[in-house]
């Protein structure tokens, strides 16, 4: 019974944060662009979330006649499903987790690699040139960045001696992993931005060139799923960064562990939005070159040095 409560709690929490991020992102972006942002609907404009949701639900859900219908319908679901599944492994507190898995990090990597399908299939099923180009870019970009994402986490795994996220958090009692694993953190953060195709790396949807990329043909709640999936992805990556490198729920005891994790997560969500506010989009080949020629050697070097030091200390 308690377990079911936790599952429902995590689900509601993740979806609430993702919906709330619609408002948070617009307000923060406007702060950084010297504007005010949405402040009309409800107090502080918080009703904007509700208004947006109502709008998305009641929009016409149009499936183009030239689309591959079953795949077209399936694609947005995969994105939300894979990301929501990954929330299961995040420890929100000492005894507040859905699934205490021995292969926690591998579970996350597997799910994030399955998330690629949503975008690739969505773009392909739309049967539209722009969507297709977006899907191609997405598949290449996400395949590339998954590699470093996995490699950058292996340093943490070696230091904690486990794939289990609870064990990793426990292992950070002596000090957060950000200090010994700074390179790993940087690589993971950049790969995380690319994996959620957030703004500096949003070339799969690049609205300047590709209309809306892979979700050009989507409307109504199907577009809403892609939309929510993106915010869920931001929340997930932020929570994982907080868990893996910043001690997760660890913190001084005047606040409950759950609150500590939330503070850290929202800090990184803020950085995600700050990146969107400040950086321009790189060209596609620049992105790939940066990935393979800078991040991959960096991640491998980090792995090598971490392993060597760990063996030396033993």
């Amino acid at each position: 019974m308690n377990h079911i409560l936790i599952i429902v709690g995590v689900l509601v929490l993740a979806l609430t944060i993702a919906a709330g991020l619609i408002w948070v992102e617009r307000r923060l972006l406007s702060l950084w662009q010297d504007r005010l942002g949405p402040n009309r609907v409800g107090p502080l404009g918080l009703g904007q979330v509700l208004a947006d949701m109502i709008k998305l639900f009641f929009k016409e859900d149009w499936i183009p006649p030239f689309a591959d219908k079953p795949v077209f319908v399936l694609a947005p679901g995969i994105l939300v499903l894979t990301i929501l599944l990954t929330f299961a492994i995040i420890p929100f507190g000492p005894h507040f987790y859905v699934f205490n898995s021995n292969i926690g990090i591998l579970f996350f990597l597997g799910n994030s690699s399955l998330g690629v399908y949503s975008i690739v299939l969505g773009g392909w099923a739309s049967n539209n040139k722009y969507s297709m180009i977006g899907a191609m870019r997405a598949s290449a970009q996400m395949l590339t960045y998954e590699v470093f994402m996995g490699l950058s986490l292996m340093g943490v795994v070696m230091m904690a001696d486990s794939f289990n996220l609870n064990t990793i958090v426990e292992a950070q009692k002596g000090g957060w992993f950000i200090i010994p694993q700074f390179i790993g953190f940087v690589v993971f953060f950049i790969a995380g931005v690319a994996e959620t195709h957030r703004l500096p790396f949003d070339i799969p949807e690049a609205e300047g060139e590709l209309v809306a990329g892979y979700h050009s043909e989507y409307s109504g709640m199907k577009f809403g799923m892609f939309f929510v999936g993106e915010y869920l992805g931001i929340t997930l990556i932020s929570a994982l960064i907080a868990t893996l490198f910043f001690g997760g729920w660890l913190g001084p005891s005047f606040l409950p562990p759950f609150v500590w994790l939330m503070i850290k997560t929202f800090f990184f969500i803020g950085i995600f939005i700050l990146l969107r506010a400040s950086l321009p989009r790189p060209r596609y080949d620049q992105l790939m070159t940066f990935g393979w020629k800078v991040l991959l050697p960096l991640a491998l070097l980090n792995l090598l040095i971490t392993g060597a030091i760990l063996i030396f200390l033993k």
Binding site: L106, G110, L114, V120, L143, E146
Partner: peptide
């Protein structure tokens, strides 16, 4: 092995096939 099956086969190689 189960996790690797998802990451490598389902996640990486099949994406390349679809690509």
């Amino acid at each position: 092995i189960a996790a690797l099956e998802v990451i490598i086969y389902a996640g990486a190689i099949m994406v390349l096939f679809i690509f």
